[in-house]
Simulated assay, not measured.
Amino acid sequence: MKRIIFLIIFAISFAYIEASVVVYLRDILYPDGFSFPLRYISPLRAIIEIGREFFSIILLFSVAFLSSKGFWKRFGAFCLIFGVWDIFFYIWLKIFLNWPSSLLEWDLLFLIPAPWTGPVIAPIIVSLTLILIFILIELFKDKPFKLSPFHAILSILGFLVIFVSFIWNAIPVARGEIPQKYPWYLLALGEILLIYVIISKARGLFK
C-alpha cells in the first residue's frame, strides 16, 4: 500500500511540474489563451519541447521500473502513474488557468511521433482505463498475471485504435489548420476492446 501511495504522490507532483511548464509556454505563445491553430515555434524550441515530452515518459517509466518487480507489475505501475499524472495535469491547469472551460475543449496532447489532439475528456477516459488496468494487475496477488495471445492481441489493437484517434487530425494540425472532428467511434472501439480484456481477466480471479 505504501508503494501505491508514493506512486500516486509522485504522479500528482509531476503533474504539477508539467502543468507549470505549460503555463509558461502559454504565457509566451498564447498570451490571450490557448486555441487552434497552433502558432509557429522555432525548430530549436520544437526539438526542445519534443525532448521534454520524450524524457517525461522516460521518467515515468523509470519510476515504474524501480518501484516494482516483474514485467506486469512494472507495466501496472506505469499505467497508474500515467493515469494519475494525466488527470491531475488537467486539474492543475484548471486551478492555475481556469482551463479547460469544458471537458470537450480541444487540446494538443502530445507531439510524438505526430501531433496528438482531442477533447480533454478523451485522454481522461483513457487515463481512467489505465488506472483500472493497474487495479486489475494488483488484484493478482496470489496468481501470476498473464495475457492469453487472444487477449494480448485485443489489448494491442485497443491501444492502437485509441492512438489513431488521437493522431486523426495530425496532418491538418501540423499544417496550421484547426482540427475539425474527433473520431469518437475509434476511442469507443479501443475502450471496448480494453474493457473487454479487463472484465475477462477480472472474472478469472473468481474461478
Rank of each mutant, 00 (worst) to 15 (best):
W99A: 08
L44S: 12
F110K: 04
F150C: 06
I87L: 09
A15I: 09
L147R: 07
L25H: 08
L97P: 04
N169A: 10
R175G: 02
S101Q: 12
K94E: 05
A19Q: 07
L187S: 04
I9D: 08
K73G: 15
P172W: 00
K141L: 11
I171C: 00
D142W: 00
I133A: 10
F145C: 10
I153L: 15
Y196K: 05
T117E: 05
F110R: 05
F14R: 03
K207E: 13
R45Y: 14
R45L: 15
L60I: 15
L160I: 15
W106S: 03
I133H: 00
L147D: 08
F14C: 06
P119L: 05
S42E: 11
T117K: 01
F163L: 10
A170E: 04
L128P: 05
L104E: 10
F166M: 13
P115F: 09
L38F: 03
A15H: 02
W184L: 14
I95K: 09
N169Q: 13
V126K: 00
P172T: 08
Q180E: 14
V23E: 06
L7W: 02
I58C: 15
P43M: 10
S56I: 12
F96E: 08
S200N: 13
A170F: 05
D142L: 04
I153T: 15
V173K: 00
I124F: 04
A77E: 06
Y182N: 04
V22T: 15
E105N: 11
F150L: 15
F163A: 13
F134K: 03
F36T: 12
V126W: 00
F134Q: 05
I57A: 13
S165Y: 01
T117N: 05
A77C: 13
